[in-house]
Design a protein around this nucleic acid. Sequence first.
DNA 1: CAGTGAGCGAGCTTCCGCTTGACTT
Length: 786
Amino acid sequence: MATSKRKSKETSATRPLVIVESPNKVKTISKILGEDFVVRASVGHFADIPATKKGVEIENDFALSYALTKKGVDVIDGLRKDLANASELILATDADREGEMIAYLLDFFLKPTIPVSRIEFRSITKKEVLAALDNRRQINMELVEAARARRALDHLVGFQVSPVLWSKVRQNLSAGRVQSPALRLIVEREMDRIKFVEVEYCGVDARLEMTGEVTAGLRTINTVPVATSKDIDEAGVVAAPAELLLVPAAQELVARLSGAPLTVADSKNSKYTRKPYWPYTTSTLLQDVLSRLHLNSNAASSILNQLYEKGLISYPRTDSAQLAPWTTEAAREQVIAMFGLNAVPETAPRFPSKKRSAQEAHEAIRPSDFGKRKPAGLTAQQLAVYELIWRRTVASQMLPASGTTVTVTFTASAEKNDYVFTAAGTTITEPGFRRLYSAVDDDEPTPLATFTVGDTVQVRELVINEHITKPPARFTESSLIKALEAEEIGRPSTYVPIISSLRNEYVWSKQGDQALIPTVSAVAVCNFLNSEFKNLMNYKFTRQMEDRLDAVVEGADTYLNVVRNFYEVGDATWCSLKATIDAALDTYKPEDHPVKHIGLHPETGESIDLRAGKSFAVRTKQQKSAKKGRGARSSGSPYFKYAGRNFSVPDAMEFGDITLDFALALINTPRVENRVIGEFNGEQVEVRTGPYGPYIARGKVNVSLPKELDPATVTMEEVLPLMQFPRSLGTDVDGEEVLVKLGQYGPHVSKAGENRSVGSLEIAQSITLAEALELLSRPKKRRGKR
DNA sequence: CAGTGAGCGAGCTTCCGCTTGACTT
């Protein structure tokens, strides 16, 4: 009998073709299936509906015509060749709605004449993949219909509502099912911060006279609770029965109580238990990585992908925290090896998603091999992320942390007033999962000394702590992802792109800070959408959509009915999108809706209103991505009008800072006219003021005026040093000229298209050829985020 | 990147969800 190996090669023309989504899965699955199968990848979606209003043919029963994407043409070409030699086609795309759509589109574009079947597996193990092969089915058309409905609905929202923004707010803006509620979260939080009323309050701590540091905090005065931040709301109102303690009263109190001992009135024990954290999903992992490693979400997400490509972790885009049985077992074995048999619970905990929209097509994010504790060849950041994943997954199989929390109550009396202080501490008897993992915001439990009821303790010192209530924190990339996931808005593969997309027009951050600050445009768009598109801005919108799609999957509803109801007819869930759009176009008068009424001019009484930029200035997408574009046009910035003049306000300005004082200062700043200050190399040199401040224009070269120079008085002599650029440093041994230039990204050296930043103008002025060549020989820095 | 929005008007912008690479200074 011929060896099976040779046989399979000879008959390769009849091997089944298995198609998955991720190219990174191909190798693993090939290894499992052996040479009897050919495994290929679709590389995600390879076809889409056109990105125009015609993407959904409303007049034609909302038909969708999918066409191959640029990348998809090559993918399908390759797959066709593989198909020509295949005995059958097995569609093994992800086990979720989009995966079913991709399977359907593969079938649609490949038009196979051989048998076709669909299989699914949630983790790539021999057992599961082989079991899947024995469990063939046909493409589930209900799932496909639901996916089409999702696609159509998103397209309709994006491509019908965005143009309304162009006509009512300003050009170049966008709206979408996911991005618009995300924007609302950020803008609403900003408004909460602006409205926030700060309140000063005090606390009093008694440091007890005993060995070891014990501090008891004042809780009540004559049974009236002393207000803490949690008793004070955003409007500065204190919730009864708590009352504010202010500095003078606190000082009086301290004077009165000074020297008085505290009596131990009560000591209560309660059980302390903390369950292990669930294994990571994309959302929880991104949150943890962002808050621990201080990366932006793009960087974090690419590290996850790198670990995945190296085969060190399971698939990084998942909404499931579930572990496959063998993973659970491997994690438990790891725990037992490290901490003994008693460190694992009798039955392994399970982590089924509580979210209706969860598709759970993959496992939780976990190490591929628990034996790999510190894989070699990783960067410090990659290792740190791997380590987190390893710890969290293994810890998920450990015992809860448990112990006892003691709360001791002390009393003191002075001048007919009764004062109650409390102190609390926790003694851990079983550290459990905490031996491997604790969250960033977990408090470290500390034990409290033992007190006997009836004893008295001397007070070493009474300390007054002054506080001011803090406004709610702005969203960070991390907390935004958390909020989106909580509202079930967006999918694991889109959390990071959504943030990038918001950063395009709607949010910005200060250097070195993670807080997301909305632009003025963001507020304008949010105000408009809140007023005219309440449904879309409802945080429940996506959940409502998912319910409707579920009905399609169950066969209780159809694509046409869902999409038509959404767009044209309206029903119990939705009012017609078309009617809403028409109403907005018809009745919304932008002039009646300033972004903000700044105030009245104190002398003239004239109203000063902030308005979004106008439509005449448009920056094309090509220009945004710094490709060759058409003429230099920029996005209109917000402005206010006063006394017939327009005053622009930077779009990236904190909304709360756009006050009447700010406006008056702008109005009173003398205007600097453009001014020719001299000539250089036969070209006129002019000082101008642009949207980014004053600059020097010479021919086609623009250079920002350094801050220390005043545009009103600056002389040719002062700007002469700026005129020396671009400057030749000479030629390298290979004959290439080396230049120093002032460019869009600052001063840099340049040789044959290679560029390196030189950091400062001073260095640019003094740099030598040798230094420039040294810089150019260094590896390129990765392009950093702003 | 480069304006102090008069008027005219053509032409442009835009979604979410799957995947990887390629990546300015």
